[in-house]
Simulated scan of single mutants.
Amino acid sequence: MVNAQAARAPRTPWTAASPAACAIGRAATLALYDELALSPKPGLVTLTDRGSHDDMDARTFMRSLIALRNYFRTIAALGAARAPFDALERCGIDAEARMLTATGGVNTHRGAIFTIGLLCASAGALVAANRRIDAGRLRAELLERWGDALVARAVRPSHLPGGQAARRLGLRSASAEASLGFPVLFDTAAPALRDALRRGMPADAARLDTLFHVIGVLDDANLAHRGGLEGLRFAQRAAQAFLAAGGSSTSDGLARAQAIGRQFVARRLSPGGAADMLAAACWLQRIGASGSPGRVT
């Protein structure tokens, strides 16, 4: 969790260099690395595997992570300053431009810039108000402070492939998910990771099962864009079957996850939206907001 010294409301205005902003941002960067380092991960880039991607690898992701470090601190400070949504959106657009410059035009973290950026802003607002950070407060703060703007954003036509696929197929877009307070994150991903860690599962196994929990229920626009509705439903069924068979806790769990990965690659499926939810759940765990052991210092 954000340590006690960092969590005291500052008597001077917050900046991106404030201790709590640094702690919140550092947790975001580490959470994105948690997601990258997880392996196997069906269709997604890992430290040793490109998944279903020809245009990116782990080095691309690391360049993106380095380019985004200041963003998460900055948007936390904007949240502490009670900035309006358009200021958060401009900050995210600037971060996306830095990401694309660092990766040579490859989208590695657009979804995470949006999702984890909003969470960092909400955390900043809570800390600046001397309120404890937990999952319920984060969600409530997000909706109370920026909910109306998120609803308006969700009905805007999207120029991005995933958003267009979601609208065409009648799915819940990432913007719509945010306007509802990220239900898949708070109702599925965070509890799955918290409960797995409490049962004593190793961190990688807990994160892998969490990823499959998310794939099983999320309207993942990345999957819909790449595989249509059939590809999305195939991925959801595969994830649900993996968990029904015992997930990572079984002796053949890793082999089954790898087999699902091969099927995803054969179909060119990549659950990028689920990866963003996993990273967000890791962020919650790292700041101690999910009920799991975690501390950012």
Score class of each variant (00 low, 15 high):
A4V: 11
A4F: 11
A4D: 01
A4W: 11
Q5E: 13
Q5F: 14
A7D: 08
A9E: 15
T12R: 08
W14D: 06
S18D: 06
A21P: 13
C22L: 13
G25C: 01
A28W: 06
L32K: 03
Y33W: 07
Y33Q: 07
D34H: 01
E35S: 10
A37T: 12
P42I: 15
V45I: 14
R50S: 01
R50W: 03
D55L: 00
M56V: 01
D57A: 02
R59S: 02
R63F: 09
A67T: 15
A67V: 11
L68H: 14
L68S: 12
L68P: 12
Y71G: 11
F72Q: 05
A77I: 11
G79P: 02
A81S: 11
A81I: 07
A83I: 02
P84M: 10
L88T: 09
C91I: 12
G92T: 11
D94A: 15
E96Q: 14
E96N: 15
M99F: 12
G104L: 11
G104Q: 06
G105S: 04
G105M: 03
V106A: 03
V106K: 10
G111E: 05
A112T: 11
I113L: 04
T115S: 06
G117T: 00
L118V: 06
L119N: 01
S122F: 07
A123P: 14
L126M: 13
I133Y: 09
D134T: 07
R137F: 09
R137G: 08
R137E: 11
R145P: 00
W146Y: 09
W146F: 08
G147R: 05
G147F: 04
A149L: 12
A149Y: 09
A149P: 08
L150W: 05
V151E: 02
V151I: 13
R153G: 08
V155M: 08
R156Q: 12
P157H: 13
S158K: 14
H159M: 13
L160Y: 10
P161N: 15
G163S: 13
R168M: 07
G170N: 06
G170I: 06
A174F: 11
L180E: 07
L180H: 10
P183A: 03
P183M: 02
V184G: 02
V184L: 05
F186C: 03
A190V: 14
A190D: 07
A190G: 10
L193I: 07
L193D: 11
L193A: 09
R194C: 06
L197D: 00
L197H: 01
G200Q: 10
A205C: 06
A205E: 10
A206E: 08
A206W: 04
R207V: 13
T210N: 10
T210Y: 11
V214C: 09
V217T: 05
D219G: 02
R226I: 00
G228P: 04
E230H: 00
L232M: 08
L232R: 12
R237V: 14
A244M: 03
G246K: 00
G246P: 03
G246R: 00
G246S: 04
G247A: 13
S248R: 10
S248D: 04
S248T: 14
S248H: 05
T250P: 14
D252L: 07
L254H: 15
Q258C: 08
A259R: 15
R262P: 14
A266T: 10
S270D: 12
D276H: 03
A281D: 02
C282Q: 07
W283C: 01
I287A: 06
I287K: 01
G291F: 07
S292K: 02
P293T: 01
R295V: 13
R295N: 08
V296A: 10
T297A: 07
